[in-house]
Design a protein around this nucleic acid. Sequence first.
DNA 1: TATGAATGAGCCTTCATTCAT
DNA 2: TATGAATGAAGGCTCATTCAT
Lengths: 225, 225, 225, 225
Amino acid sequence: MTTAATQPARPGKAVRTPKLRADATRNRERIVLAARDAFVELGPDVPLDEVAKRAGVGNATLYRNFPDRTALIREVALLVKNRILALAETAAAEADTAGASPFDALQRFAHATVEEKLGALCPLFTDRVDPFDPELAETRERLTAAVGGLLARTREAGELRPDVDHGDLFIAISQLTRPLPGTSCRLLDDFVHRHLQLFLDGLRAPARSVLPGRAATFQDFQAHH
Amino acid sequence: MTTAATQPARPGKAVRTPKLRADATRNRERIVLAARDAFVELGPDVPLDEVAKRAGVGNATLYRNFPDRTALIREVALLVKNRILALAETAAAEADTAGASPFDALQRFAHATVEEKLGALCPLFTDRVDPFDPELAETRERLTAAVGGLLARTREAGELRPDVDHGDLFIAISQLTRPLPGTSCRLLDDFVHRHLQLFLDGLRAPARSVLPGRAATFQDFQAHH
Amino acid sequence: MTTAATQPARPGKAVRTPKLRADATRNRERIVLAARDAFVELGPDVPLDEVAKRAGVGNATLYRNFPDRTALIREVALLVKNRILALAETAAAEADTAGASPFDALQRFAHATVEEKLGALCPLFTDRVDPFDPELAETRERLTAAVGGLLARTREAGELRPDVDHGDLFIAISQLTRPLPGTSCRLLDDFVHRHLQLFLDGLRAPARSVLPGRAATFQDFQAHH
Amino acid sequence: MTTAATQPARPGKAVRTPKLRADATRNRERIVLAARDAFVELGPDVPLDEVAKRAGVGNATLYRNFPDRTALIREVALLVKNRILALAETAAAEADTAGASPFDALQRFAHATVEEKLGALCPLFTDRVDPFDPELAETRERLTAAVGGLLARTREAGELRPDVDHGDLFIAISQLTRPLPGTSCRLLDDFVHRHLQLFLDGLRAPARSVLPGRAATFQDFQAHH
DNA sequence: TATGAATGAGCCTTCATTCAT
DNA sequence: TATGAATGAAGGCTCATTCAT
């Protein structure tokens, strides 16, 4: 989806070009996946040589594809956000199903993002990706829309306290699920879902307190992540 | 002779004897405070030269006082834990006041730990301090006792859901209030108290869900922090 | 594929394949030789940056090839021991020649080791190389065998006092020829062969004294060097 | 002997001055002795703080007495040379005793210098002390005279080969007894006297070889040590 | 004067990034 | 294009030397 729409019809030398491009694309993907895993396991300061080794490519190949760490992070961000977008769209659909509890869909979505390592990867997104990057912006908008729909549906069903917004959800999820640096995040995993659930319980209507500050929007989440 | 009990009453030359030592002690303190702030702002990998610069001393002076990063972290941990201990003891006392709501005391304590940067400093405590350090152990025990009393009181008052323990509180607080590395944590501060409050709302009795896993004890918190 | 046996007969592109590797190998060799010379001239604590500069490479290149000082020392040790082994084997052959004086061969060998800087490099071998390193062990065994044969032959010829062994020879040679640290060893060279000769005169049968202690074996030499 | 001839007769304030001077002198001596031992055990690069600690004084006291490492080395050199001078004078006297073997006296002297760590300390003397230092020069001359007499006596007795001189003796002794850097010199001590004896056997008349080069004088030894 | 503390310079090592094949 | 190698710029830490008490 990233750099896809290449001319398949061109004759001549082009016949060999797609072959190479397939290889290159394969390499790109392996690097991005390796980077995501390395970031999750070793933290955002993992040496890029380590990423290259995990991807099974030379370090220079990594640099050829991603001129610097920021460019690689951008790709990981895109990957993760797209996967979370898919989860959000699924959850939104579930929430719209007749007879279903929108809050249940919301909860499933929240817990599912943990598996996508949203928390582990958030540190990457901070002030290291261009906030005006168009492709990221598009994903962001679609994610905002999907989660916005989900929340709206939940609110309409009277299950969500009215004084919270998308940003509150995302910021809190990413905070609660963020592993300690240098720790293989297994340690935390024992309690992540537990504390996330406590937070979700706090989101449920009726509100049990008056919240300080204002509701966080997706903009606020972006500002951080 | 090492630290405090210098003759307060004696005038004259006697005041000059501890003078140099006073200077050194002052330096130690400045370094620890600078370290705490630097850790909070720049994360646990902040160059020690940066800490020295902030403290206004040469880097070797830092190394003279703290042979390595671990020793410095230990001192910061001690400082922070002692300050939080004081907060916990205050809160426990408030909770015992007739007519007061123990949960209110708990909430005030939780929000107060944010100002002490509990979350910012937790990453330091992980596998970087000796878990058997006696001084740290003592502080830990006193902290466990104080918070344990506070929670017990709250539980007895029927304000706390029964399926949570100290560890849940500390782990979640430290996660929710942990700033992103490299971010001046002002960004997060806008929402920290808000999301902490949502979590506290989730802690209130009656429980709104069945929590997965088991209650986290202070041991679990220590294992991480 | 690693080192040598590249197709010598094949023309064309095949010659280019090992090219880069040849470059790297060349670099390794330059580093080892530069290290040997630097160790000889400046002593075993010479800054590795100095070695890198002499080799004409960046310091990180040195570290890429030799992860630490020990690894570099190991390579120098191997180089020197192999060169001395060659001398010993030559001398052993000469000693076996009919009509030749085995003691003369021994003396030529001893003086030749001076040019190989045995003494200059011995300090490196002490407790800085793994005593169980297999490659070093093999060289050591072959060296022991060659010199042992040479000494046995000399002893049989009645030219060597009977109360000495290999270790006495090696320890004394390395001591007598060891330059002062920080001294370009030219100063010493004027007298090294002279004093070595005096020592060799002392080795000659018949013994002119009763030696204290016991004969030093190659093990003893290894223990030091 | 170094800074001794202080006016004992002066009245007035001077009565307290000698007291202090005695203290200071005591400190100087302790520092020099500690330095000698530290040099022997840890090598010529031992941190001066280590020397100060061994001497039981603050590091600044060391610097007050010896402005830099060179000055301290000079004092150690003086101390050691004076002690060896005493040995040489004793040996010369023994050599002159009717019926005694001058070569035996020479041998005893040579072995005795080992205990004075001549070899261990020689590296200090190299290009780190001023060759024109008058006090050192005086000691040197007296040492030359004493050993010269001893050698002359031995030569006259027909026990010493005629083609060697003082320098040969001193250079070889210091080489043979020099410990490996970083090694507590116990390791070497097992064999030092043994190899020194072999060298002495080589010195004995009649000469068993033609020596290369020229006889080394005390000047040559000084050039190195 | 003697001392503990402070300082700056230097070496080892790692890592992001570039180069040559 | 993909690769292994090379590079330089930091950061951690030690030590000789100076300062302030």
